[in-house]
Amino acid sequence: MILRPRSHFGWGASAADYANPTKGLVVHYNGGPTSLRTVEDCIRYWKGVRTQHMSGNGWADIGYSFGVAVNGEVFTGRGLNRYQAAQGTTSGNANYYSVSLMIGGTEQPTPAQIQAVKDLRAYLMARGNSGTVLGHRDFVSTSCPGGVLYPLVKDGTFTGSGNGTPTTSTGTGEYRPENGDGLYMLYEYGDAIKPLQPKLGVTSDGYYGPGTEAAVRAYQQANGLTVDGIAGPQTLTHLGLTAPAPAKDSGVVEWPGVYLKDYTAHTSARTWQQRMKDRGWTITVDGKYGPASARVCLAFQKEKRLTADGIVGPDTWRAAWTSPVT
């Protein structure tokens, strides 16, 4: 399946809470007909849904785990291991992934969309999900996923054989992992992770599973690094690896190479201050990193369990764009 990461839509890491959905996949639809014809239509629609869910509903992110465009591409919403806002019940949102097919009313799913749901199911099953497929109406009183899709849920159409290996847009090769934010963390995958694993003594399979995370934590602990289980610039550099730069469309601003500490006056100080203000911190955006900015930095570092020194280095800078807002 062609799996589009969040970075494809200009989004960084999801701010939704962590969850471990293992019980199945829930099918949704648009509601009313949307007359989406092309993948470009679907991208605009997907971005609009996220805006509506966050601005209109006040949610932390788009409500769905994934979406399926009319051409069969799978769009990442909240993605793996995130609490949902789609099923309408606490148990449903915590224990099931969700997928919204980008059709509505009496519009028919394309063969590519049907296959994409099968592929997504296989992808999730490889990551510990049961493979059960339900409809939104199995949780709450609603017409979703509509009179066209719900019969396909009930007759087992979506539980057919699927190829759960993500590919690039050309259909070949393994998709680059994560959100394009330059960090490798739990449940991400891709060839870029493989060089890290033998240095930690774990199988080089490109899957950042619990074993790889545990090995990263052990390495960080043994070498006096920040212990967070995430292979970021500090850990990768210590291992002799080159930390990947954030993707241009990831929404993450690359670290400018300037350490911000007391009385640093630099354009990057203004950029960081504005980002922290956008995250809800009370901070003056003036491009001058003085004691007040350092106090915000120190509090932020303690909250995110970073090295608490009041200095904005590469890890603290990256966390300002990639860590969930809490």
Rank of each mutant, 00 (worst) to 15 (best):
L3F: 15
S161I: 08
F139W: 12
G77K: 07
T51E: 12
A299D: 15
T226M: 06
T90K: 13
I193Q: 07
D191V: 12
Y83T: 06
G135S: 02
S35Y: 14
T90G: 01
W11I: 01
S323A: 14
D41H: 09
G147H: 08
M276K: 09
K199I: 10
L183C: 06
K47R: 15
D181S: 02
K199Q: 11
T165H: 10
P177L: 04
V296D: 01
P5Y: 02
S91Y: 13
V258S: 01
G160C: 11
G182D: 05
D249T: 12
R279L: 14
N20P: 00
R121M: 08
A112S: 13
G67Q: 06
Y187M: 15
G180K: 05
A192P: 03
M185I: 04
A69Q: 00
L124S: 04
A112P: 00
D181R: 02
P166A: 12
S141L: 12
V227K: 01
T212A: 07
Y45L: 04
S293C: 06
P151W: 09
Q197V: 09
A265F: 04
G201M: 10
L298V: 00
L183A: 11
A243T: 03
Y96S: 08
W11Y: 14
V148N: 03
V325N: 14
C297N: 12
E73Q: 14
D181M: 07
V27W: 01
R275V: 02
Y184L: 08
T89L: 06
T172W: 10
L236V: 04
G287R: 11
S169E: 15
Q273C: 10
A13N: 11
G164N: 10
V285P: 11
T132K: 14
D309S: 07
S130Q: 07
D17Q: 14
D155Y: 02
G88A: 12
T322G: 06
P246W: 04
A247V: 01
A299P: 00
G128T: 00
S143A: 14
E174Q: 11
I2V: 15
G31C: 10
P198L: 09
P256S: 06
Q301A: 05
S169R: 02
V39Q: 11
D278C: 05
T170S: 12
A218E: 13
V325D: 01
L200N: 09
Y219W: 08
T307I: 12
P314C: 07
R4N: 12
Y64T: 00
Y189T: 00
G232Q: 01
G162P: 04
P210I: 08
W281V: 01
L101P: 10
G147E: 12
V74W: 05
Y263T: 07
R6M: 04
